[in-house]
Design a protein around this nucleic acid. Structure first.
Length: 152
DNA sequence: GCCAACGTTGGC
DNA sequence: GCCAACGTTGGC
């Protein structure tokens, strides 16, 4: 079993939105590296840190798990969607997604707090210039995050 | 709104 | 295959 951090804009899908549903389809990923993680590496049951990005208080907002294997992202075929991709076809889908099941909301573990934690220095999402919306998390980093979430 | 960092596109 | 131009991400 592996661990991941997945960014979501709360204005699009927040942890509260995700908790209200049995699972959410992680639509809109348009980056090959992130797609390949979903398609080739992520497995049902993997742990997910649900991260709020592009918002007033960026940081980890909840815990989730991978709930399906990868399948084509329907929004790539929808000409009215901002995620439409004219180069994708149903015969040759370009973008994949998978379902994510939110398990619980946590206190907001802010990006600034993550950056202040020496043990998380190597965490991929914290590296300078990192923009990838899905990044692997090591078991050690996961454990550190869990202990930070429990601290007060 | 700014801008650094990174990814993608397309001409050559 | 190179690389300049352009587009996007995302924190601030």
């Amino acid at each position: 079993m592996s661990y991941w951090l997945m960014k979501s804009e709360p204005e699009e899908v927040s942890i509260d939105d995700a908790l209200a549903l049995p699972s959410v389809a992680w639509f809109g990923v348009r980056n090959y590296q992130a797609r390949n993680f979903m398609r080739d590496v992520m497995r049902v049951g993997d742990g997910v840190l649900f991260y709020h990005s592009s918002c007033a208080e960026p940081g980890i907002a909840g815990i989730a798990e991978v709930a399906s294997t990868a399948y084509p992202d329907e929004t790539q075929f929808d000409a009215s969607s901002k995620y439409f991709d004219p180069k994708a076809s149903r015969e040759n889908p370009r973008w994949m997604l998978l379902d994510v099941k939110a398990l619980r909301k946590t206190r907001l573990l802010a990006l600034s707090e993550l950056r202040n934690c020496a043990e998380l220095e190597q965490m991929q999402v914290l590296k300078k210039g990192s923009r990838l919306s899905i990044t692997p998390v090591t078991a050690d980093e996961w454990a550190v995050v869990m202990s930070l979430l429990q601290a007060y």
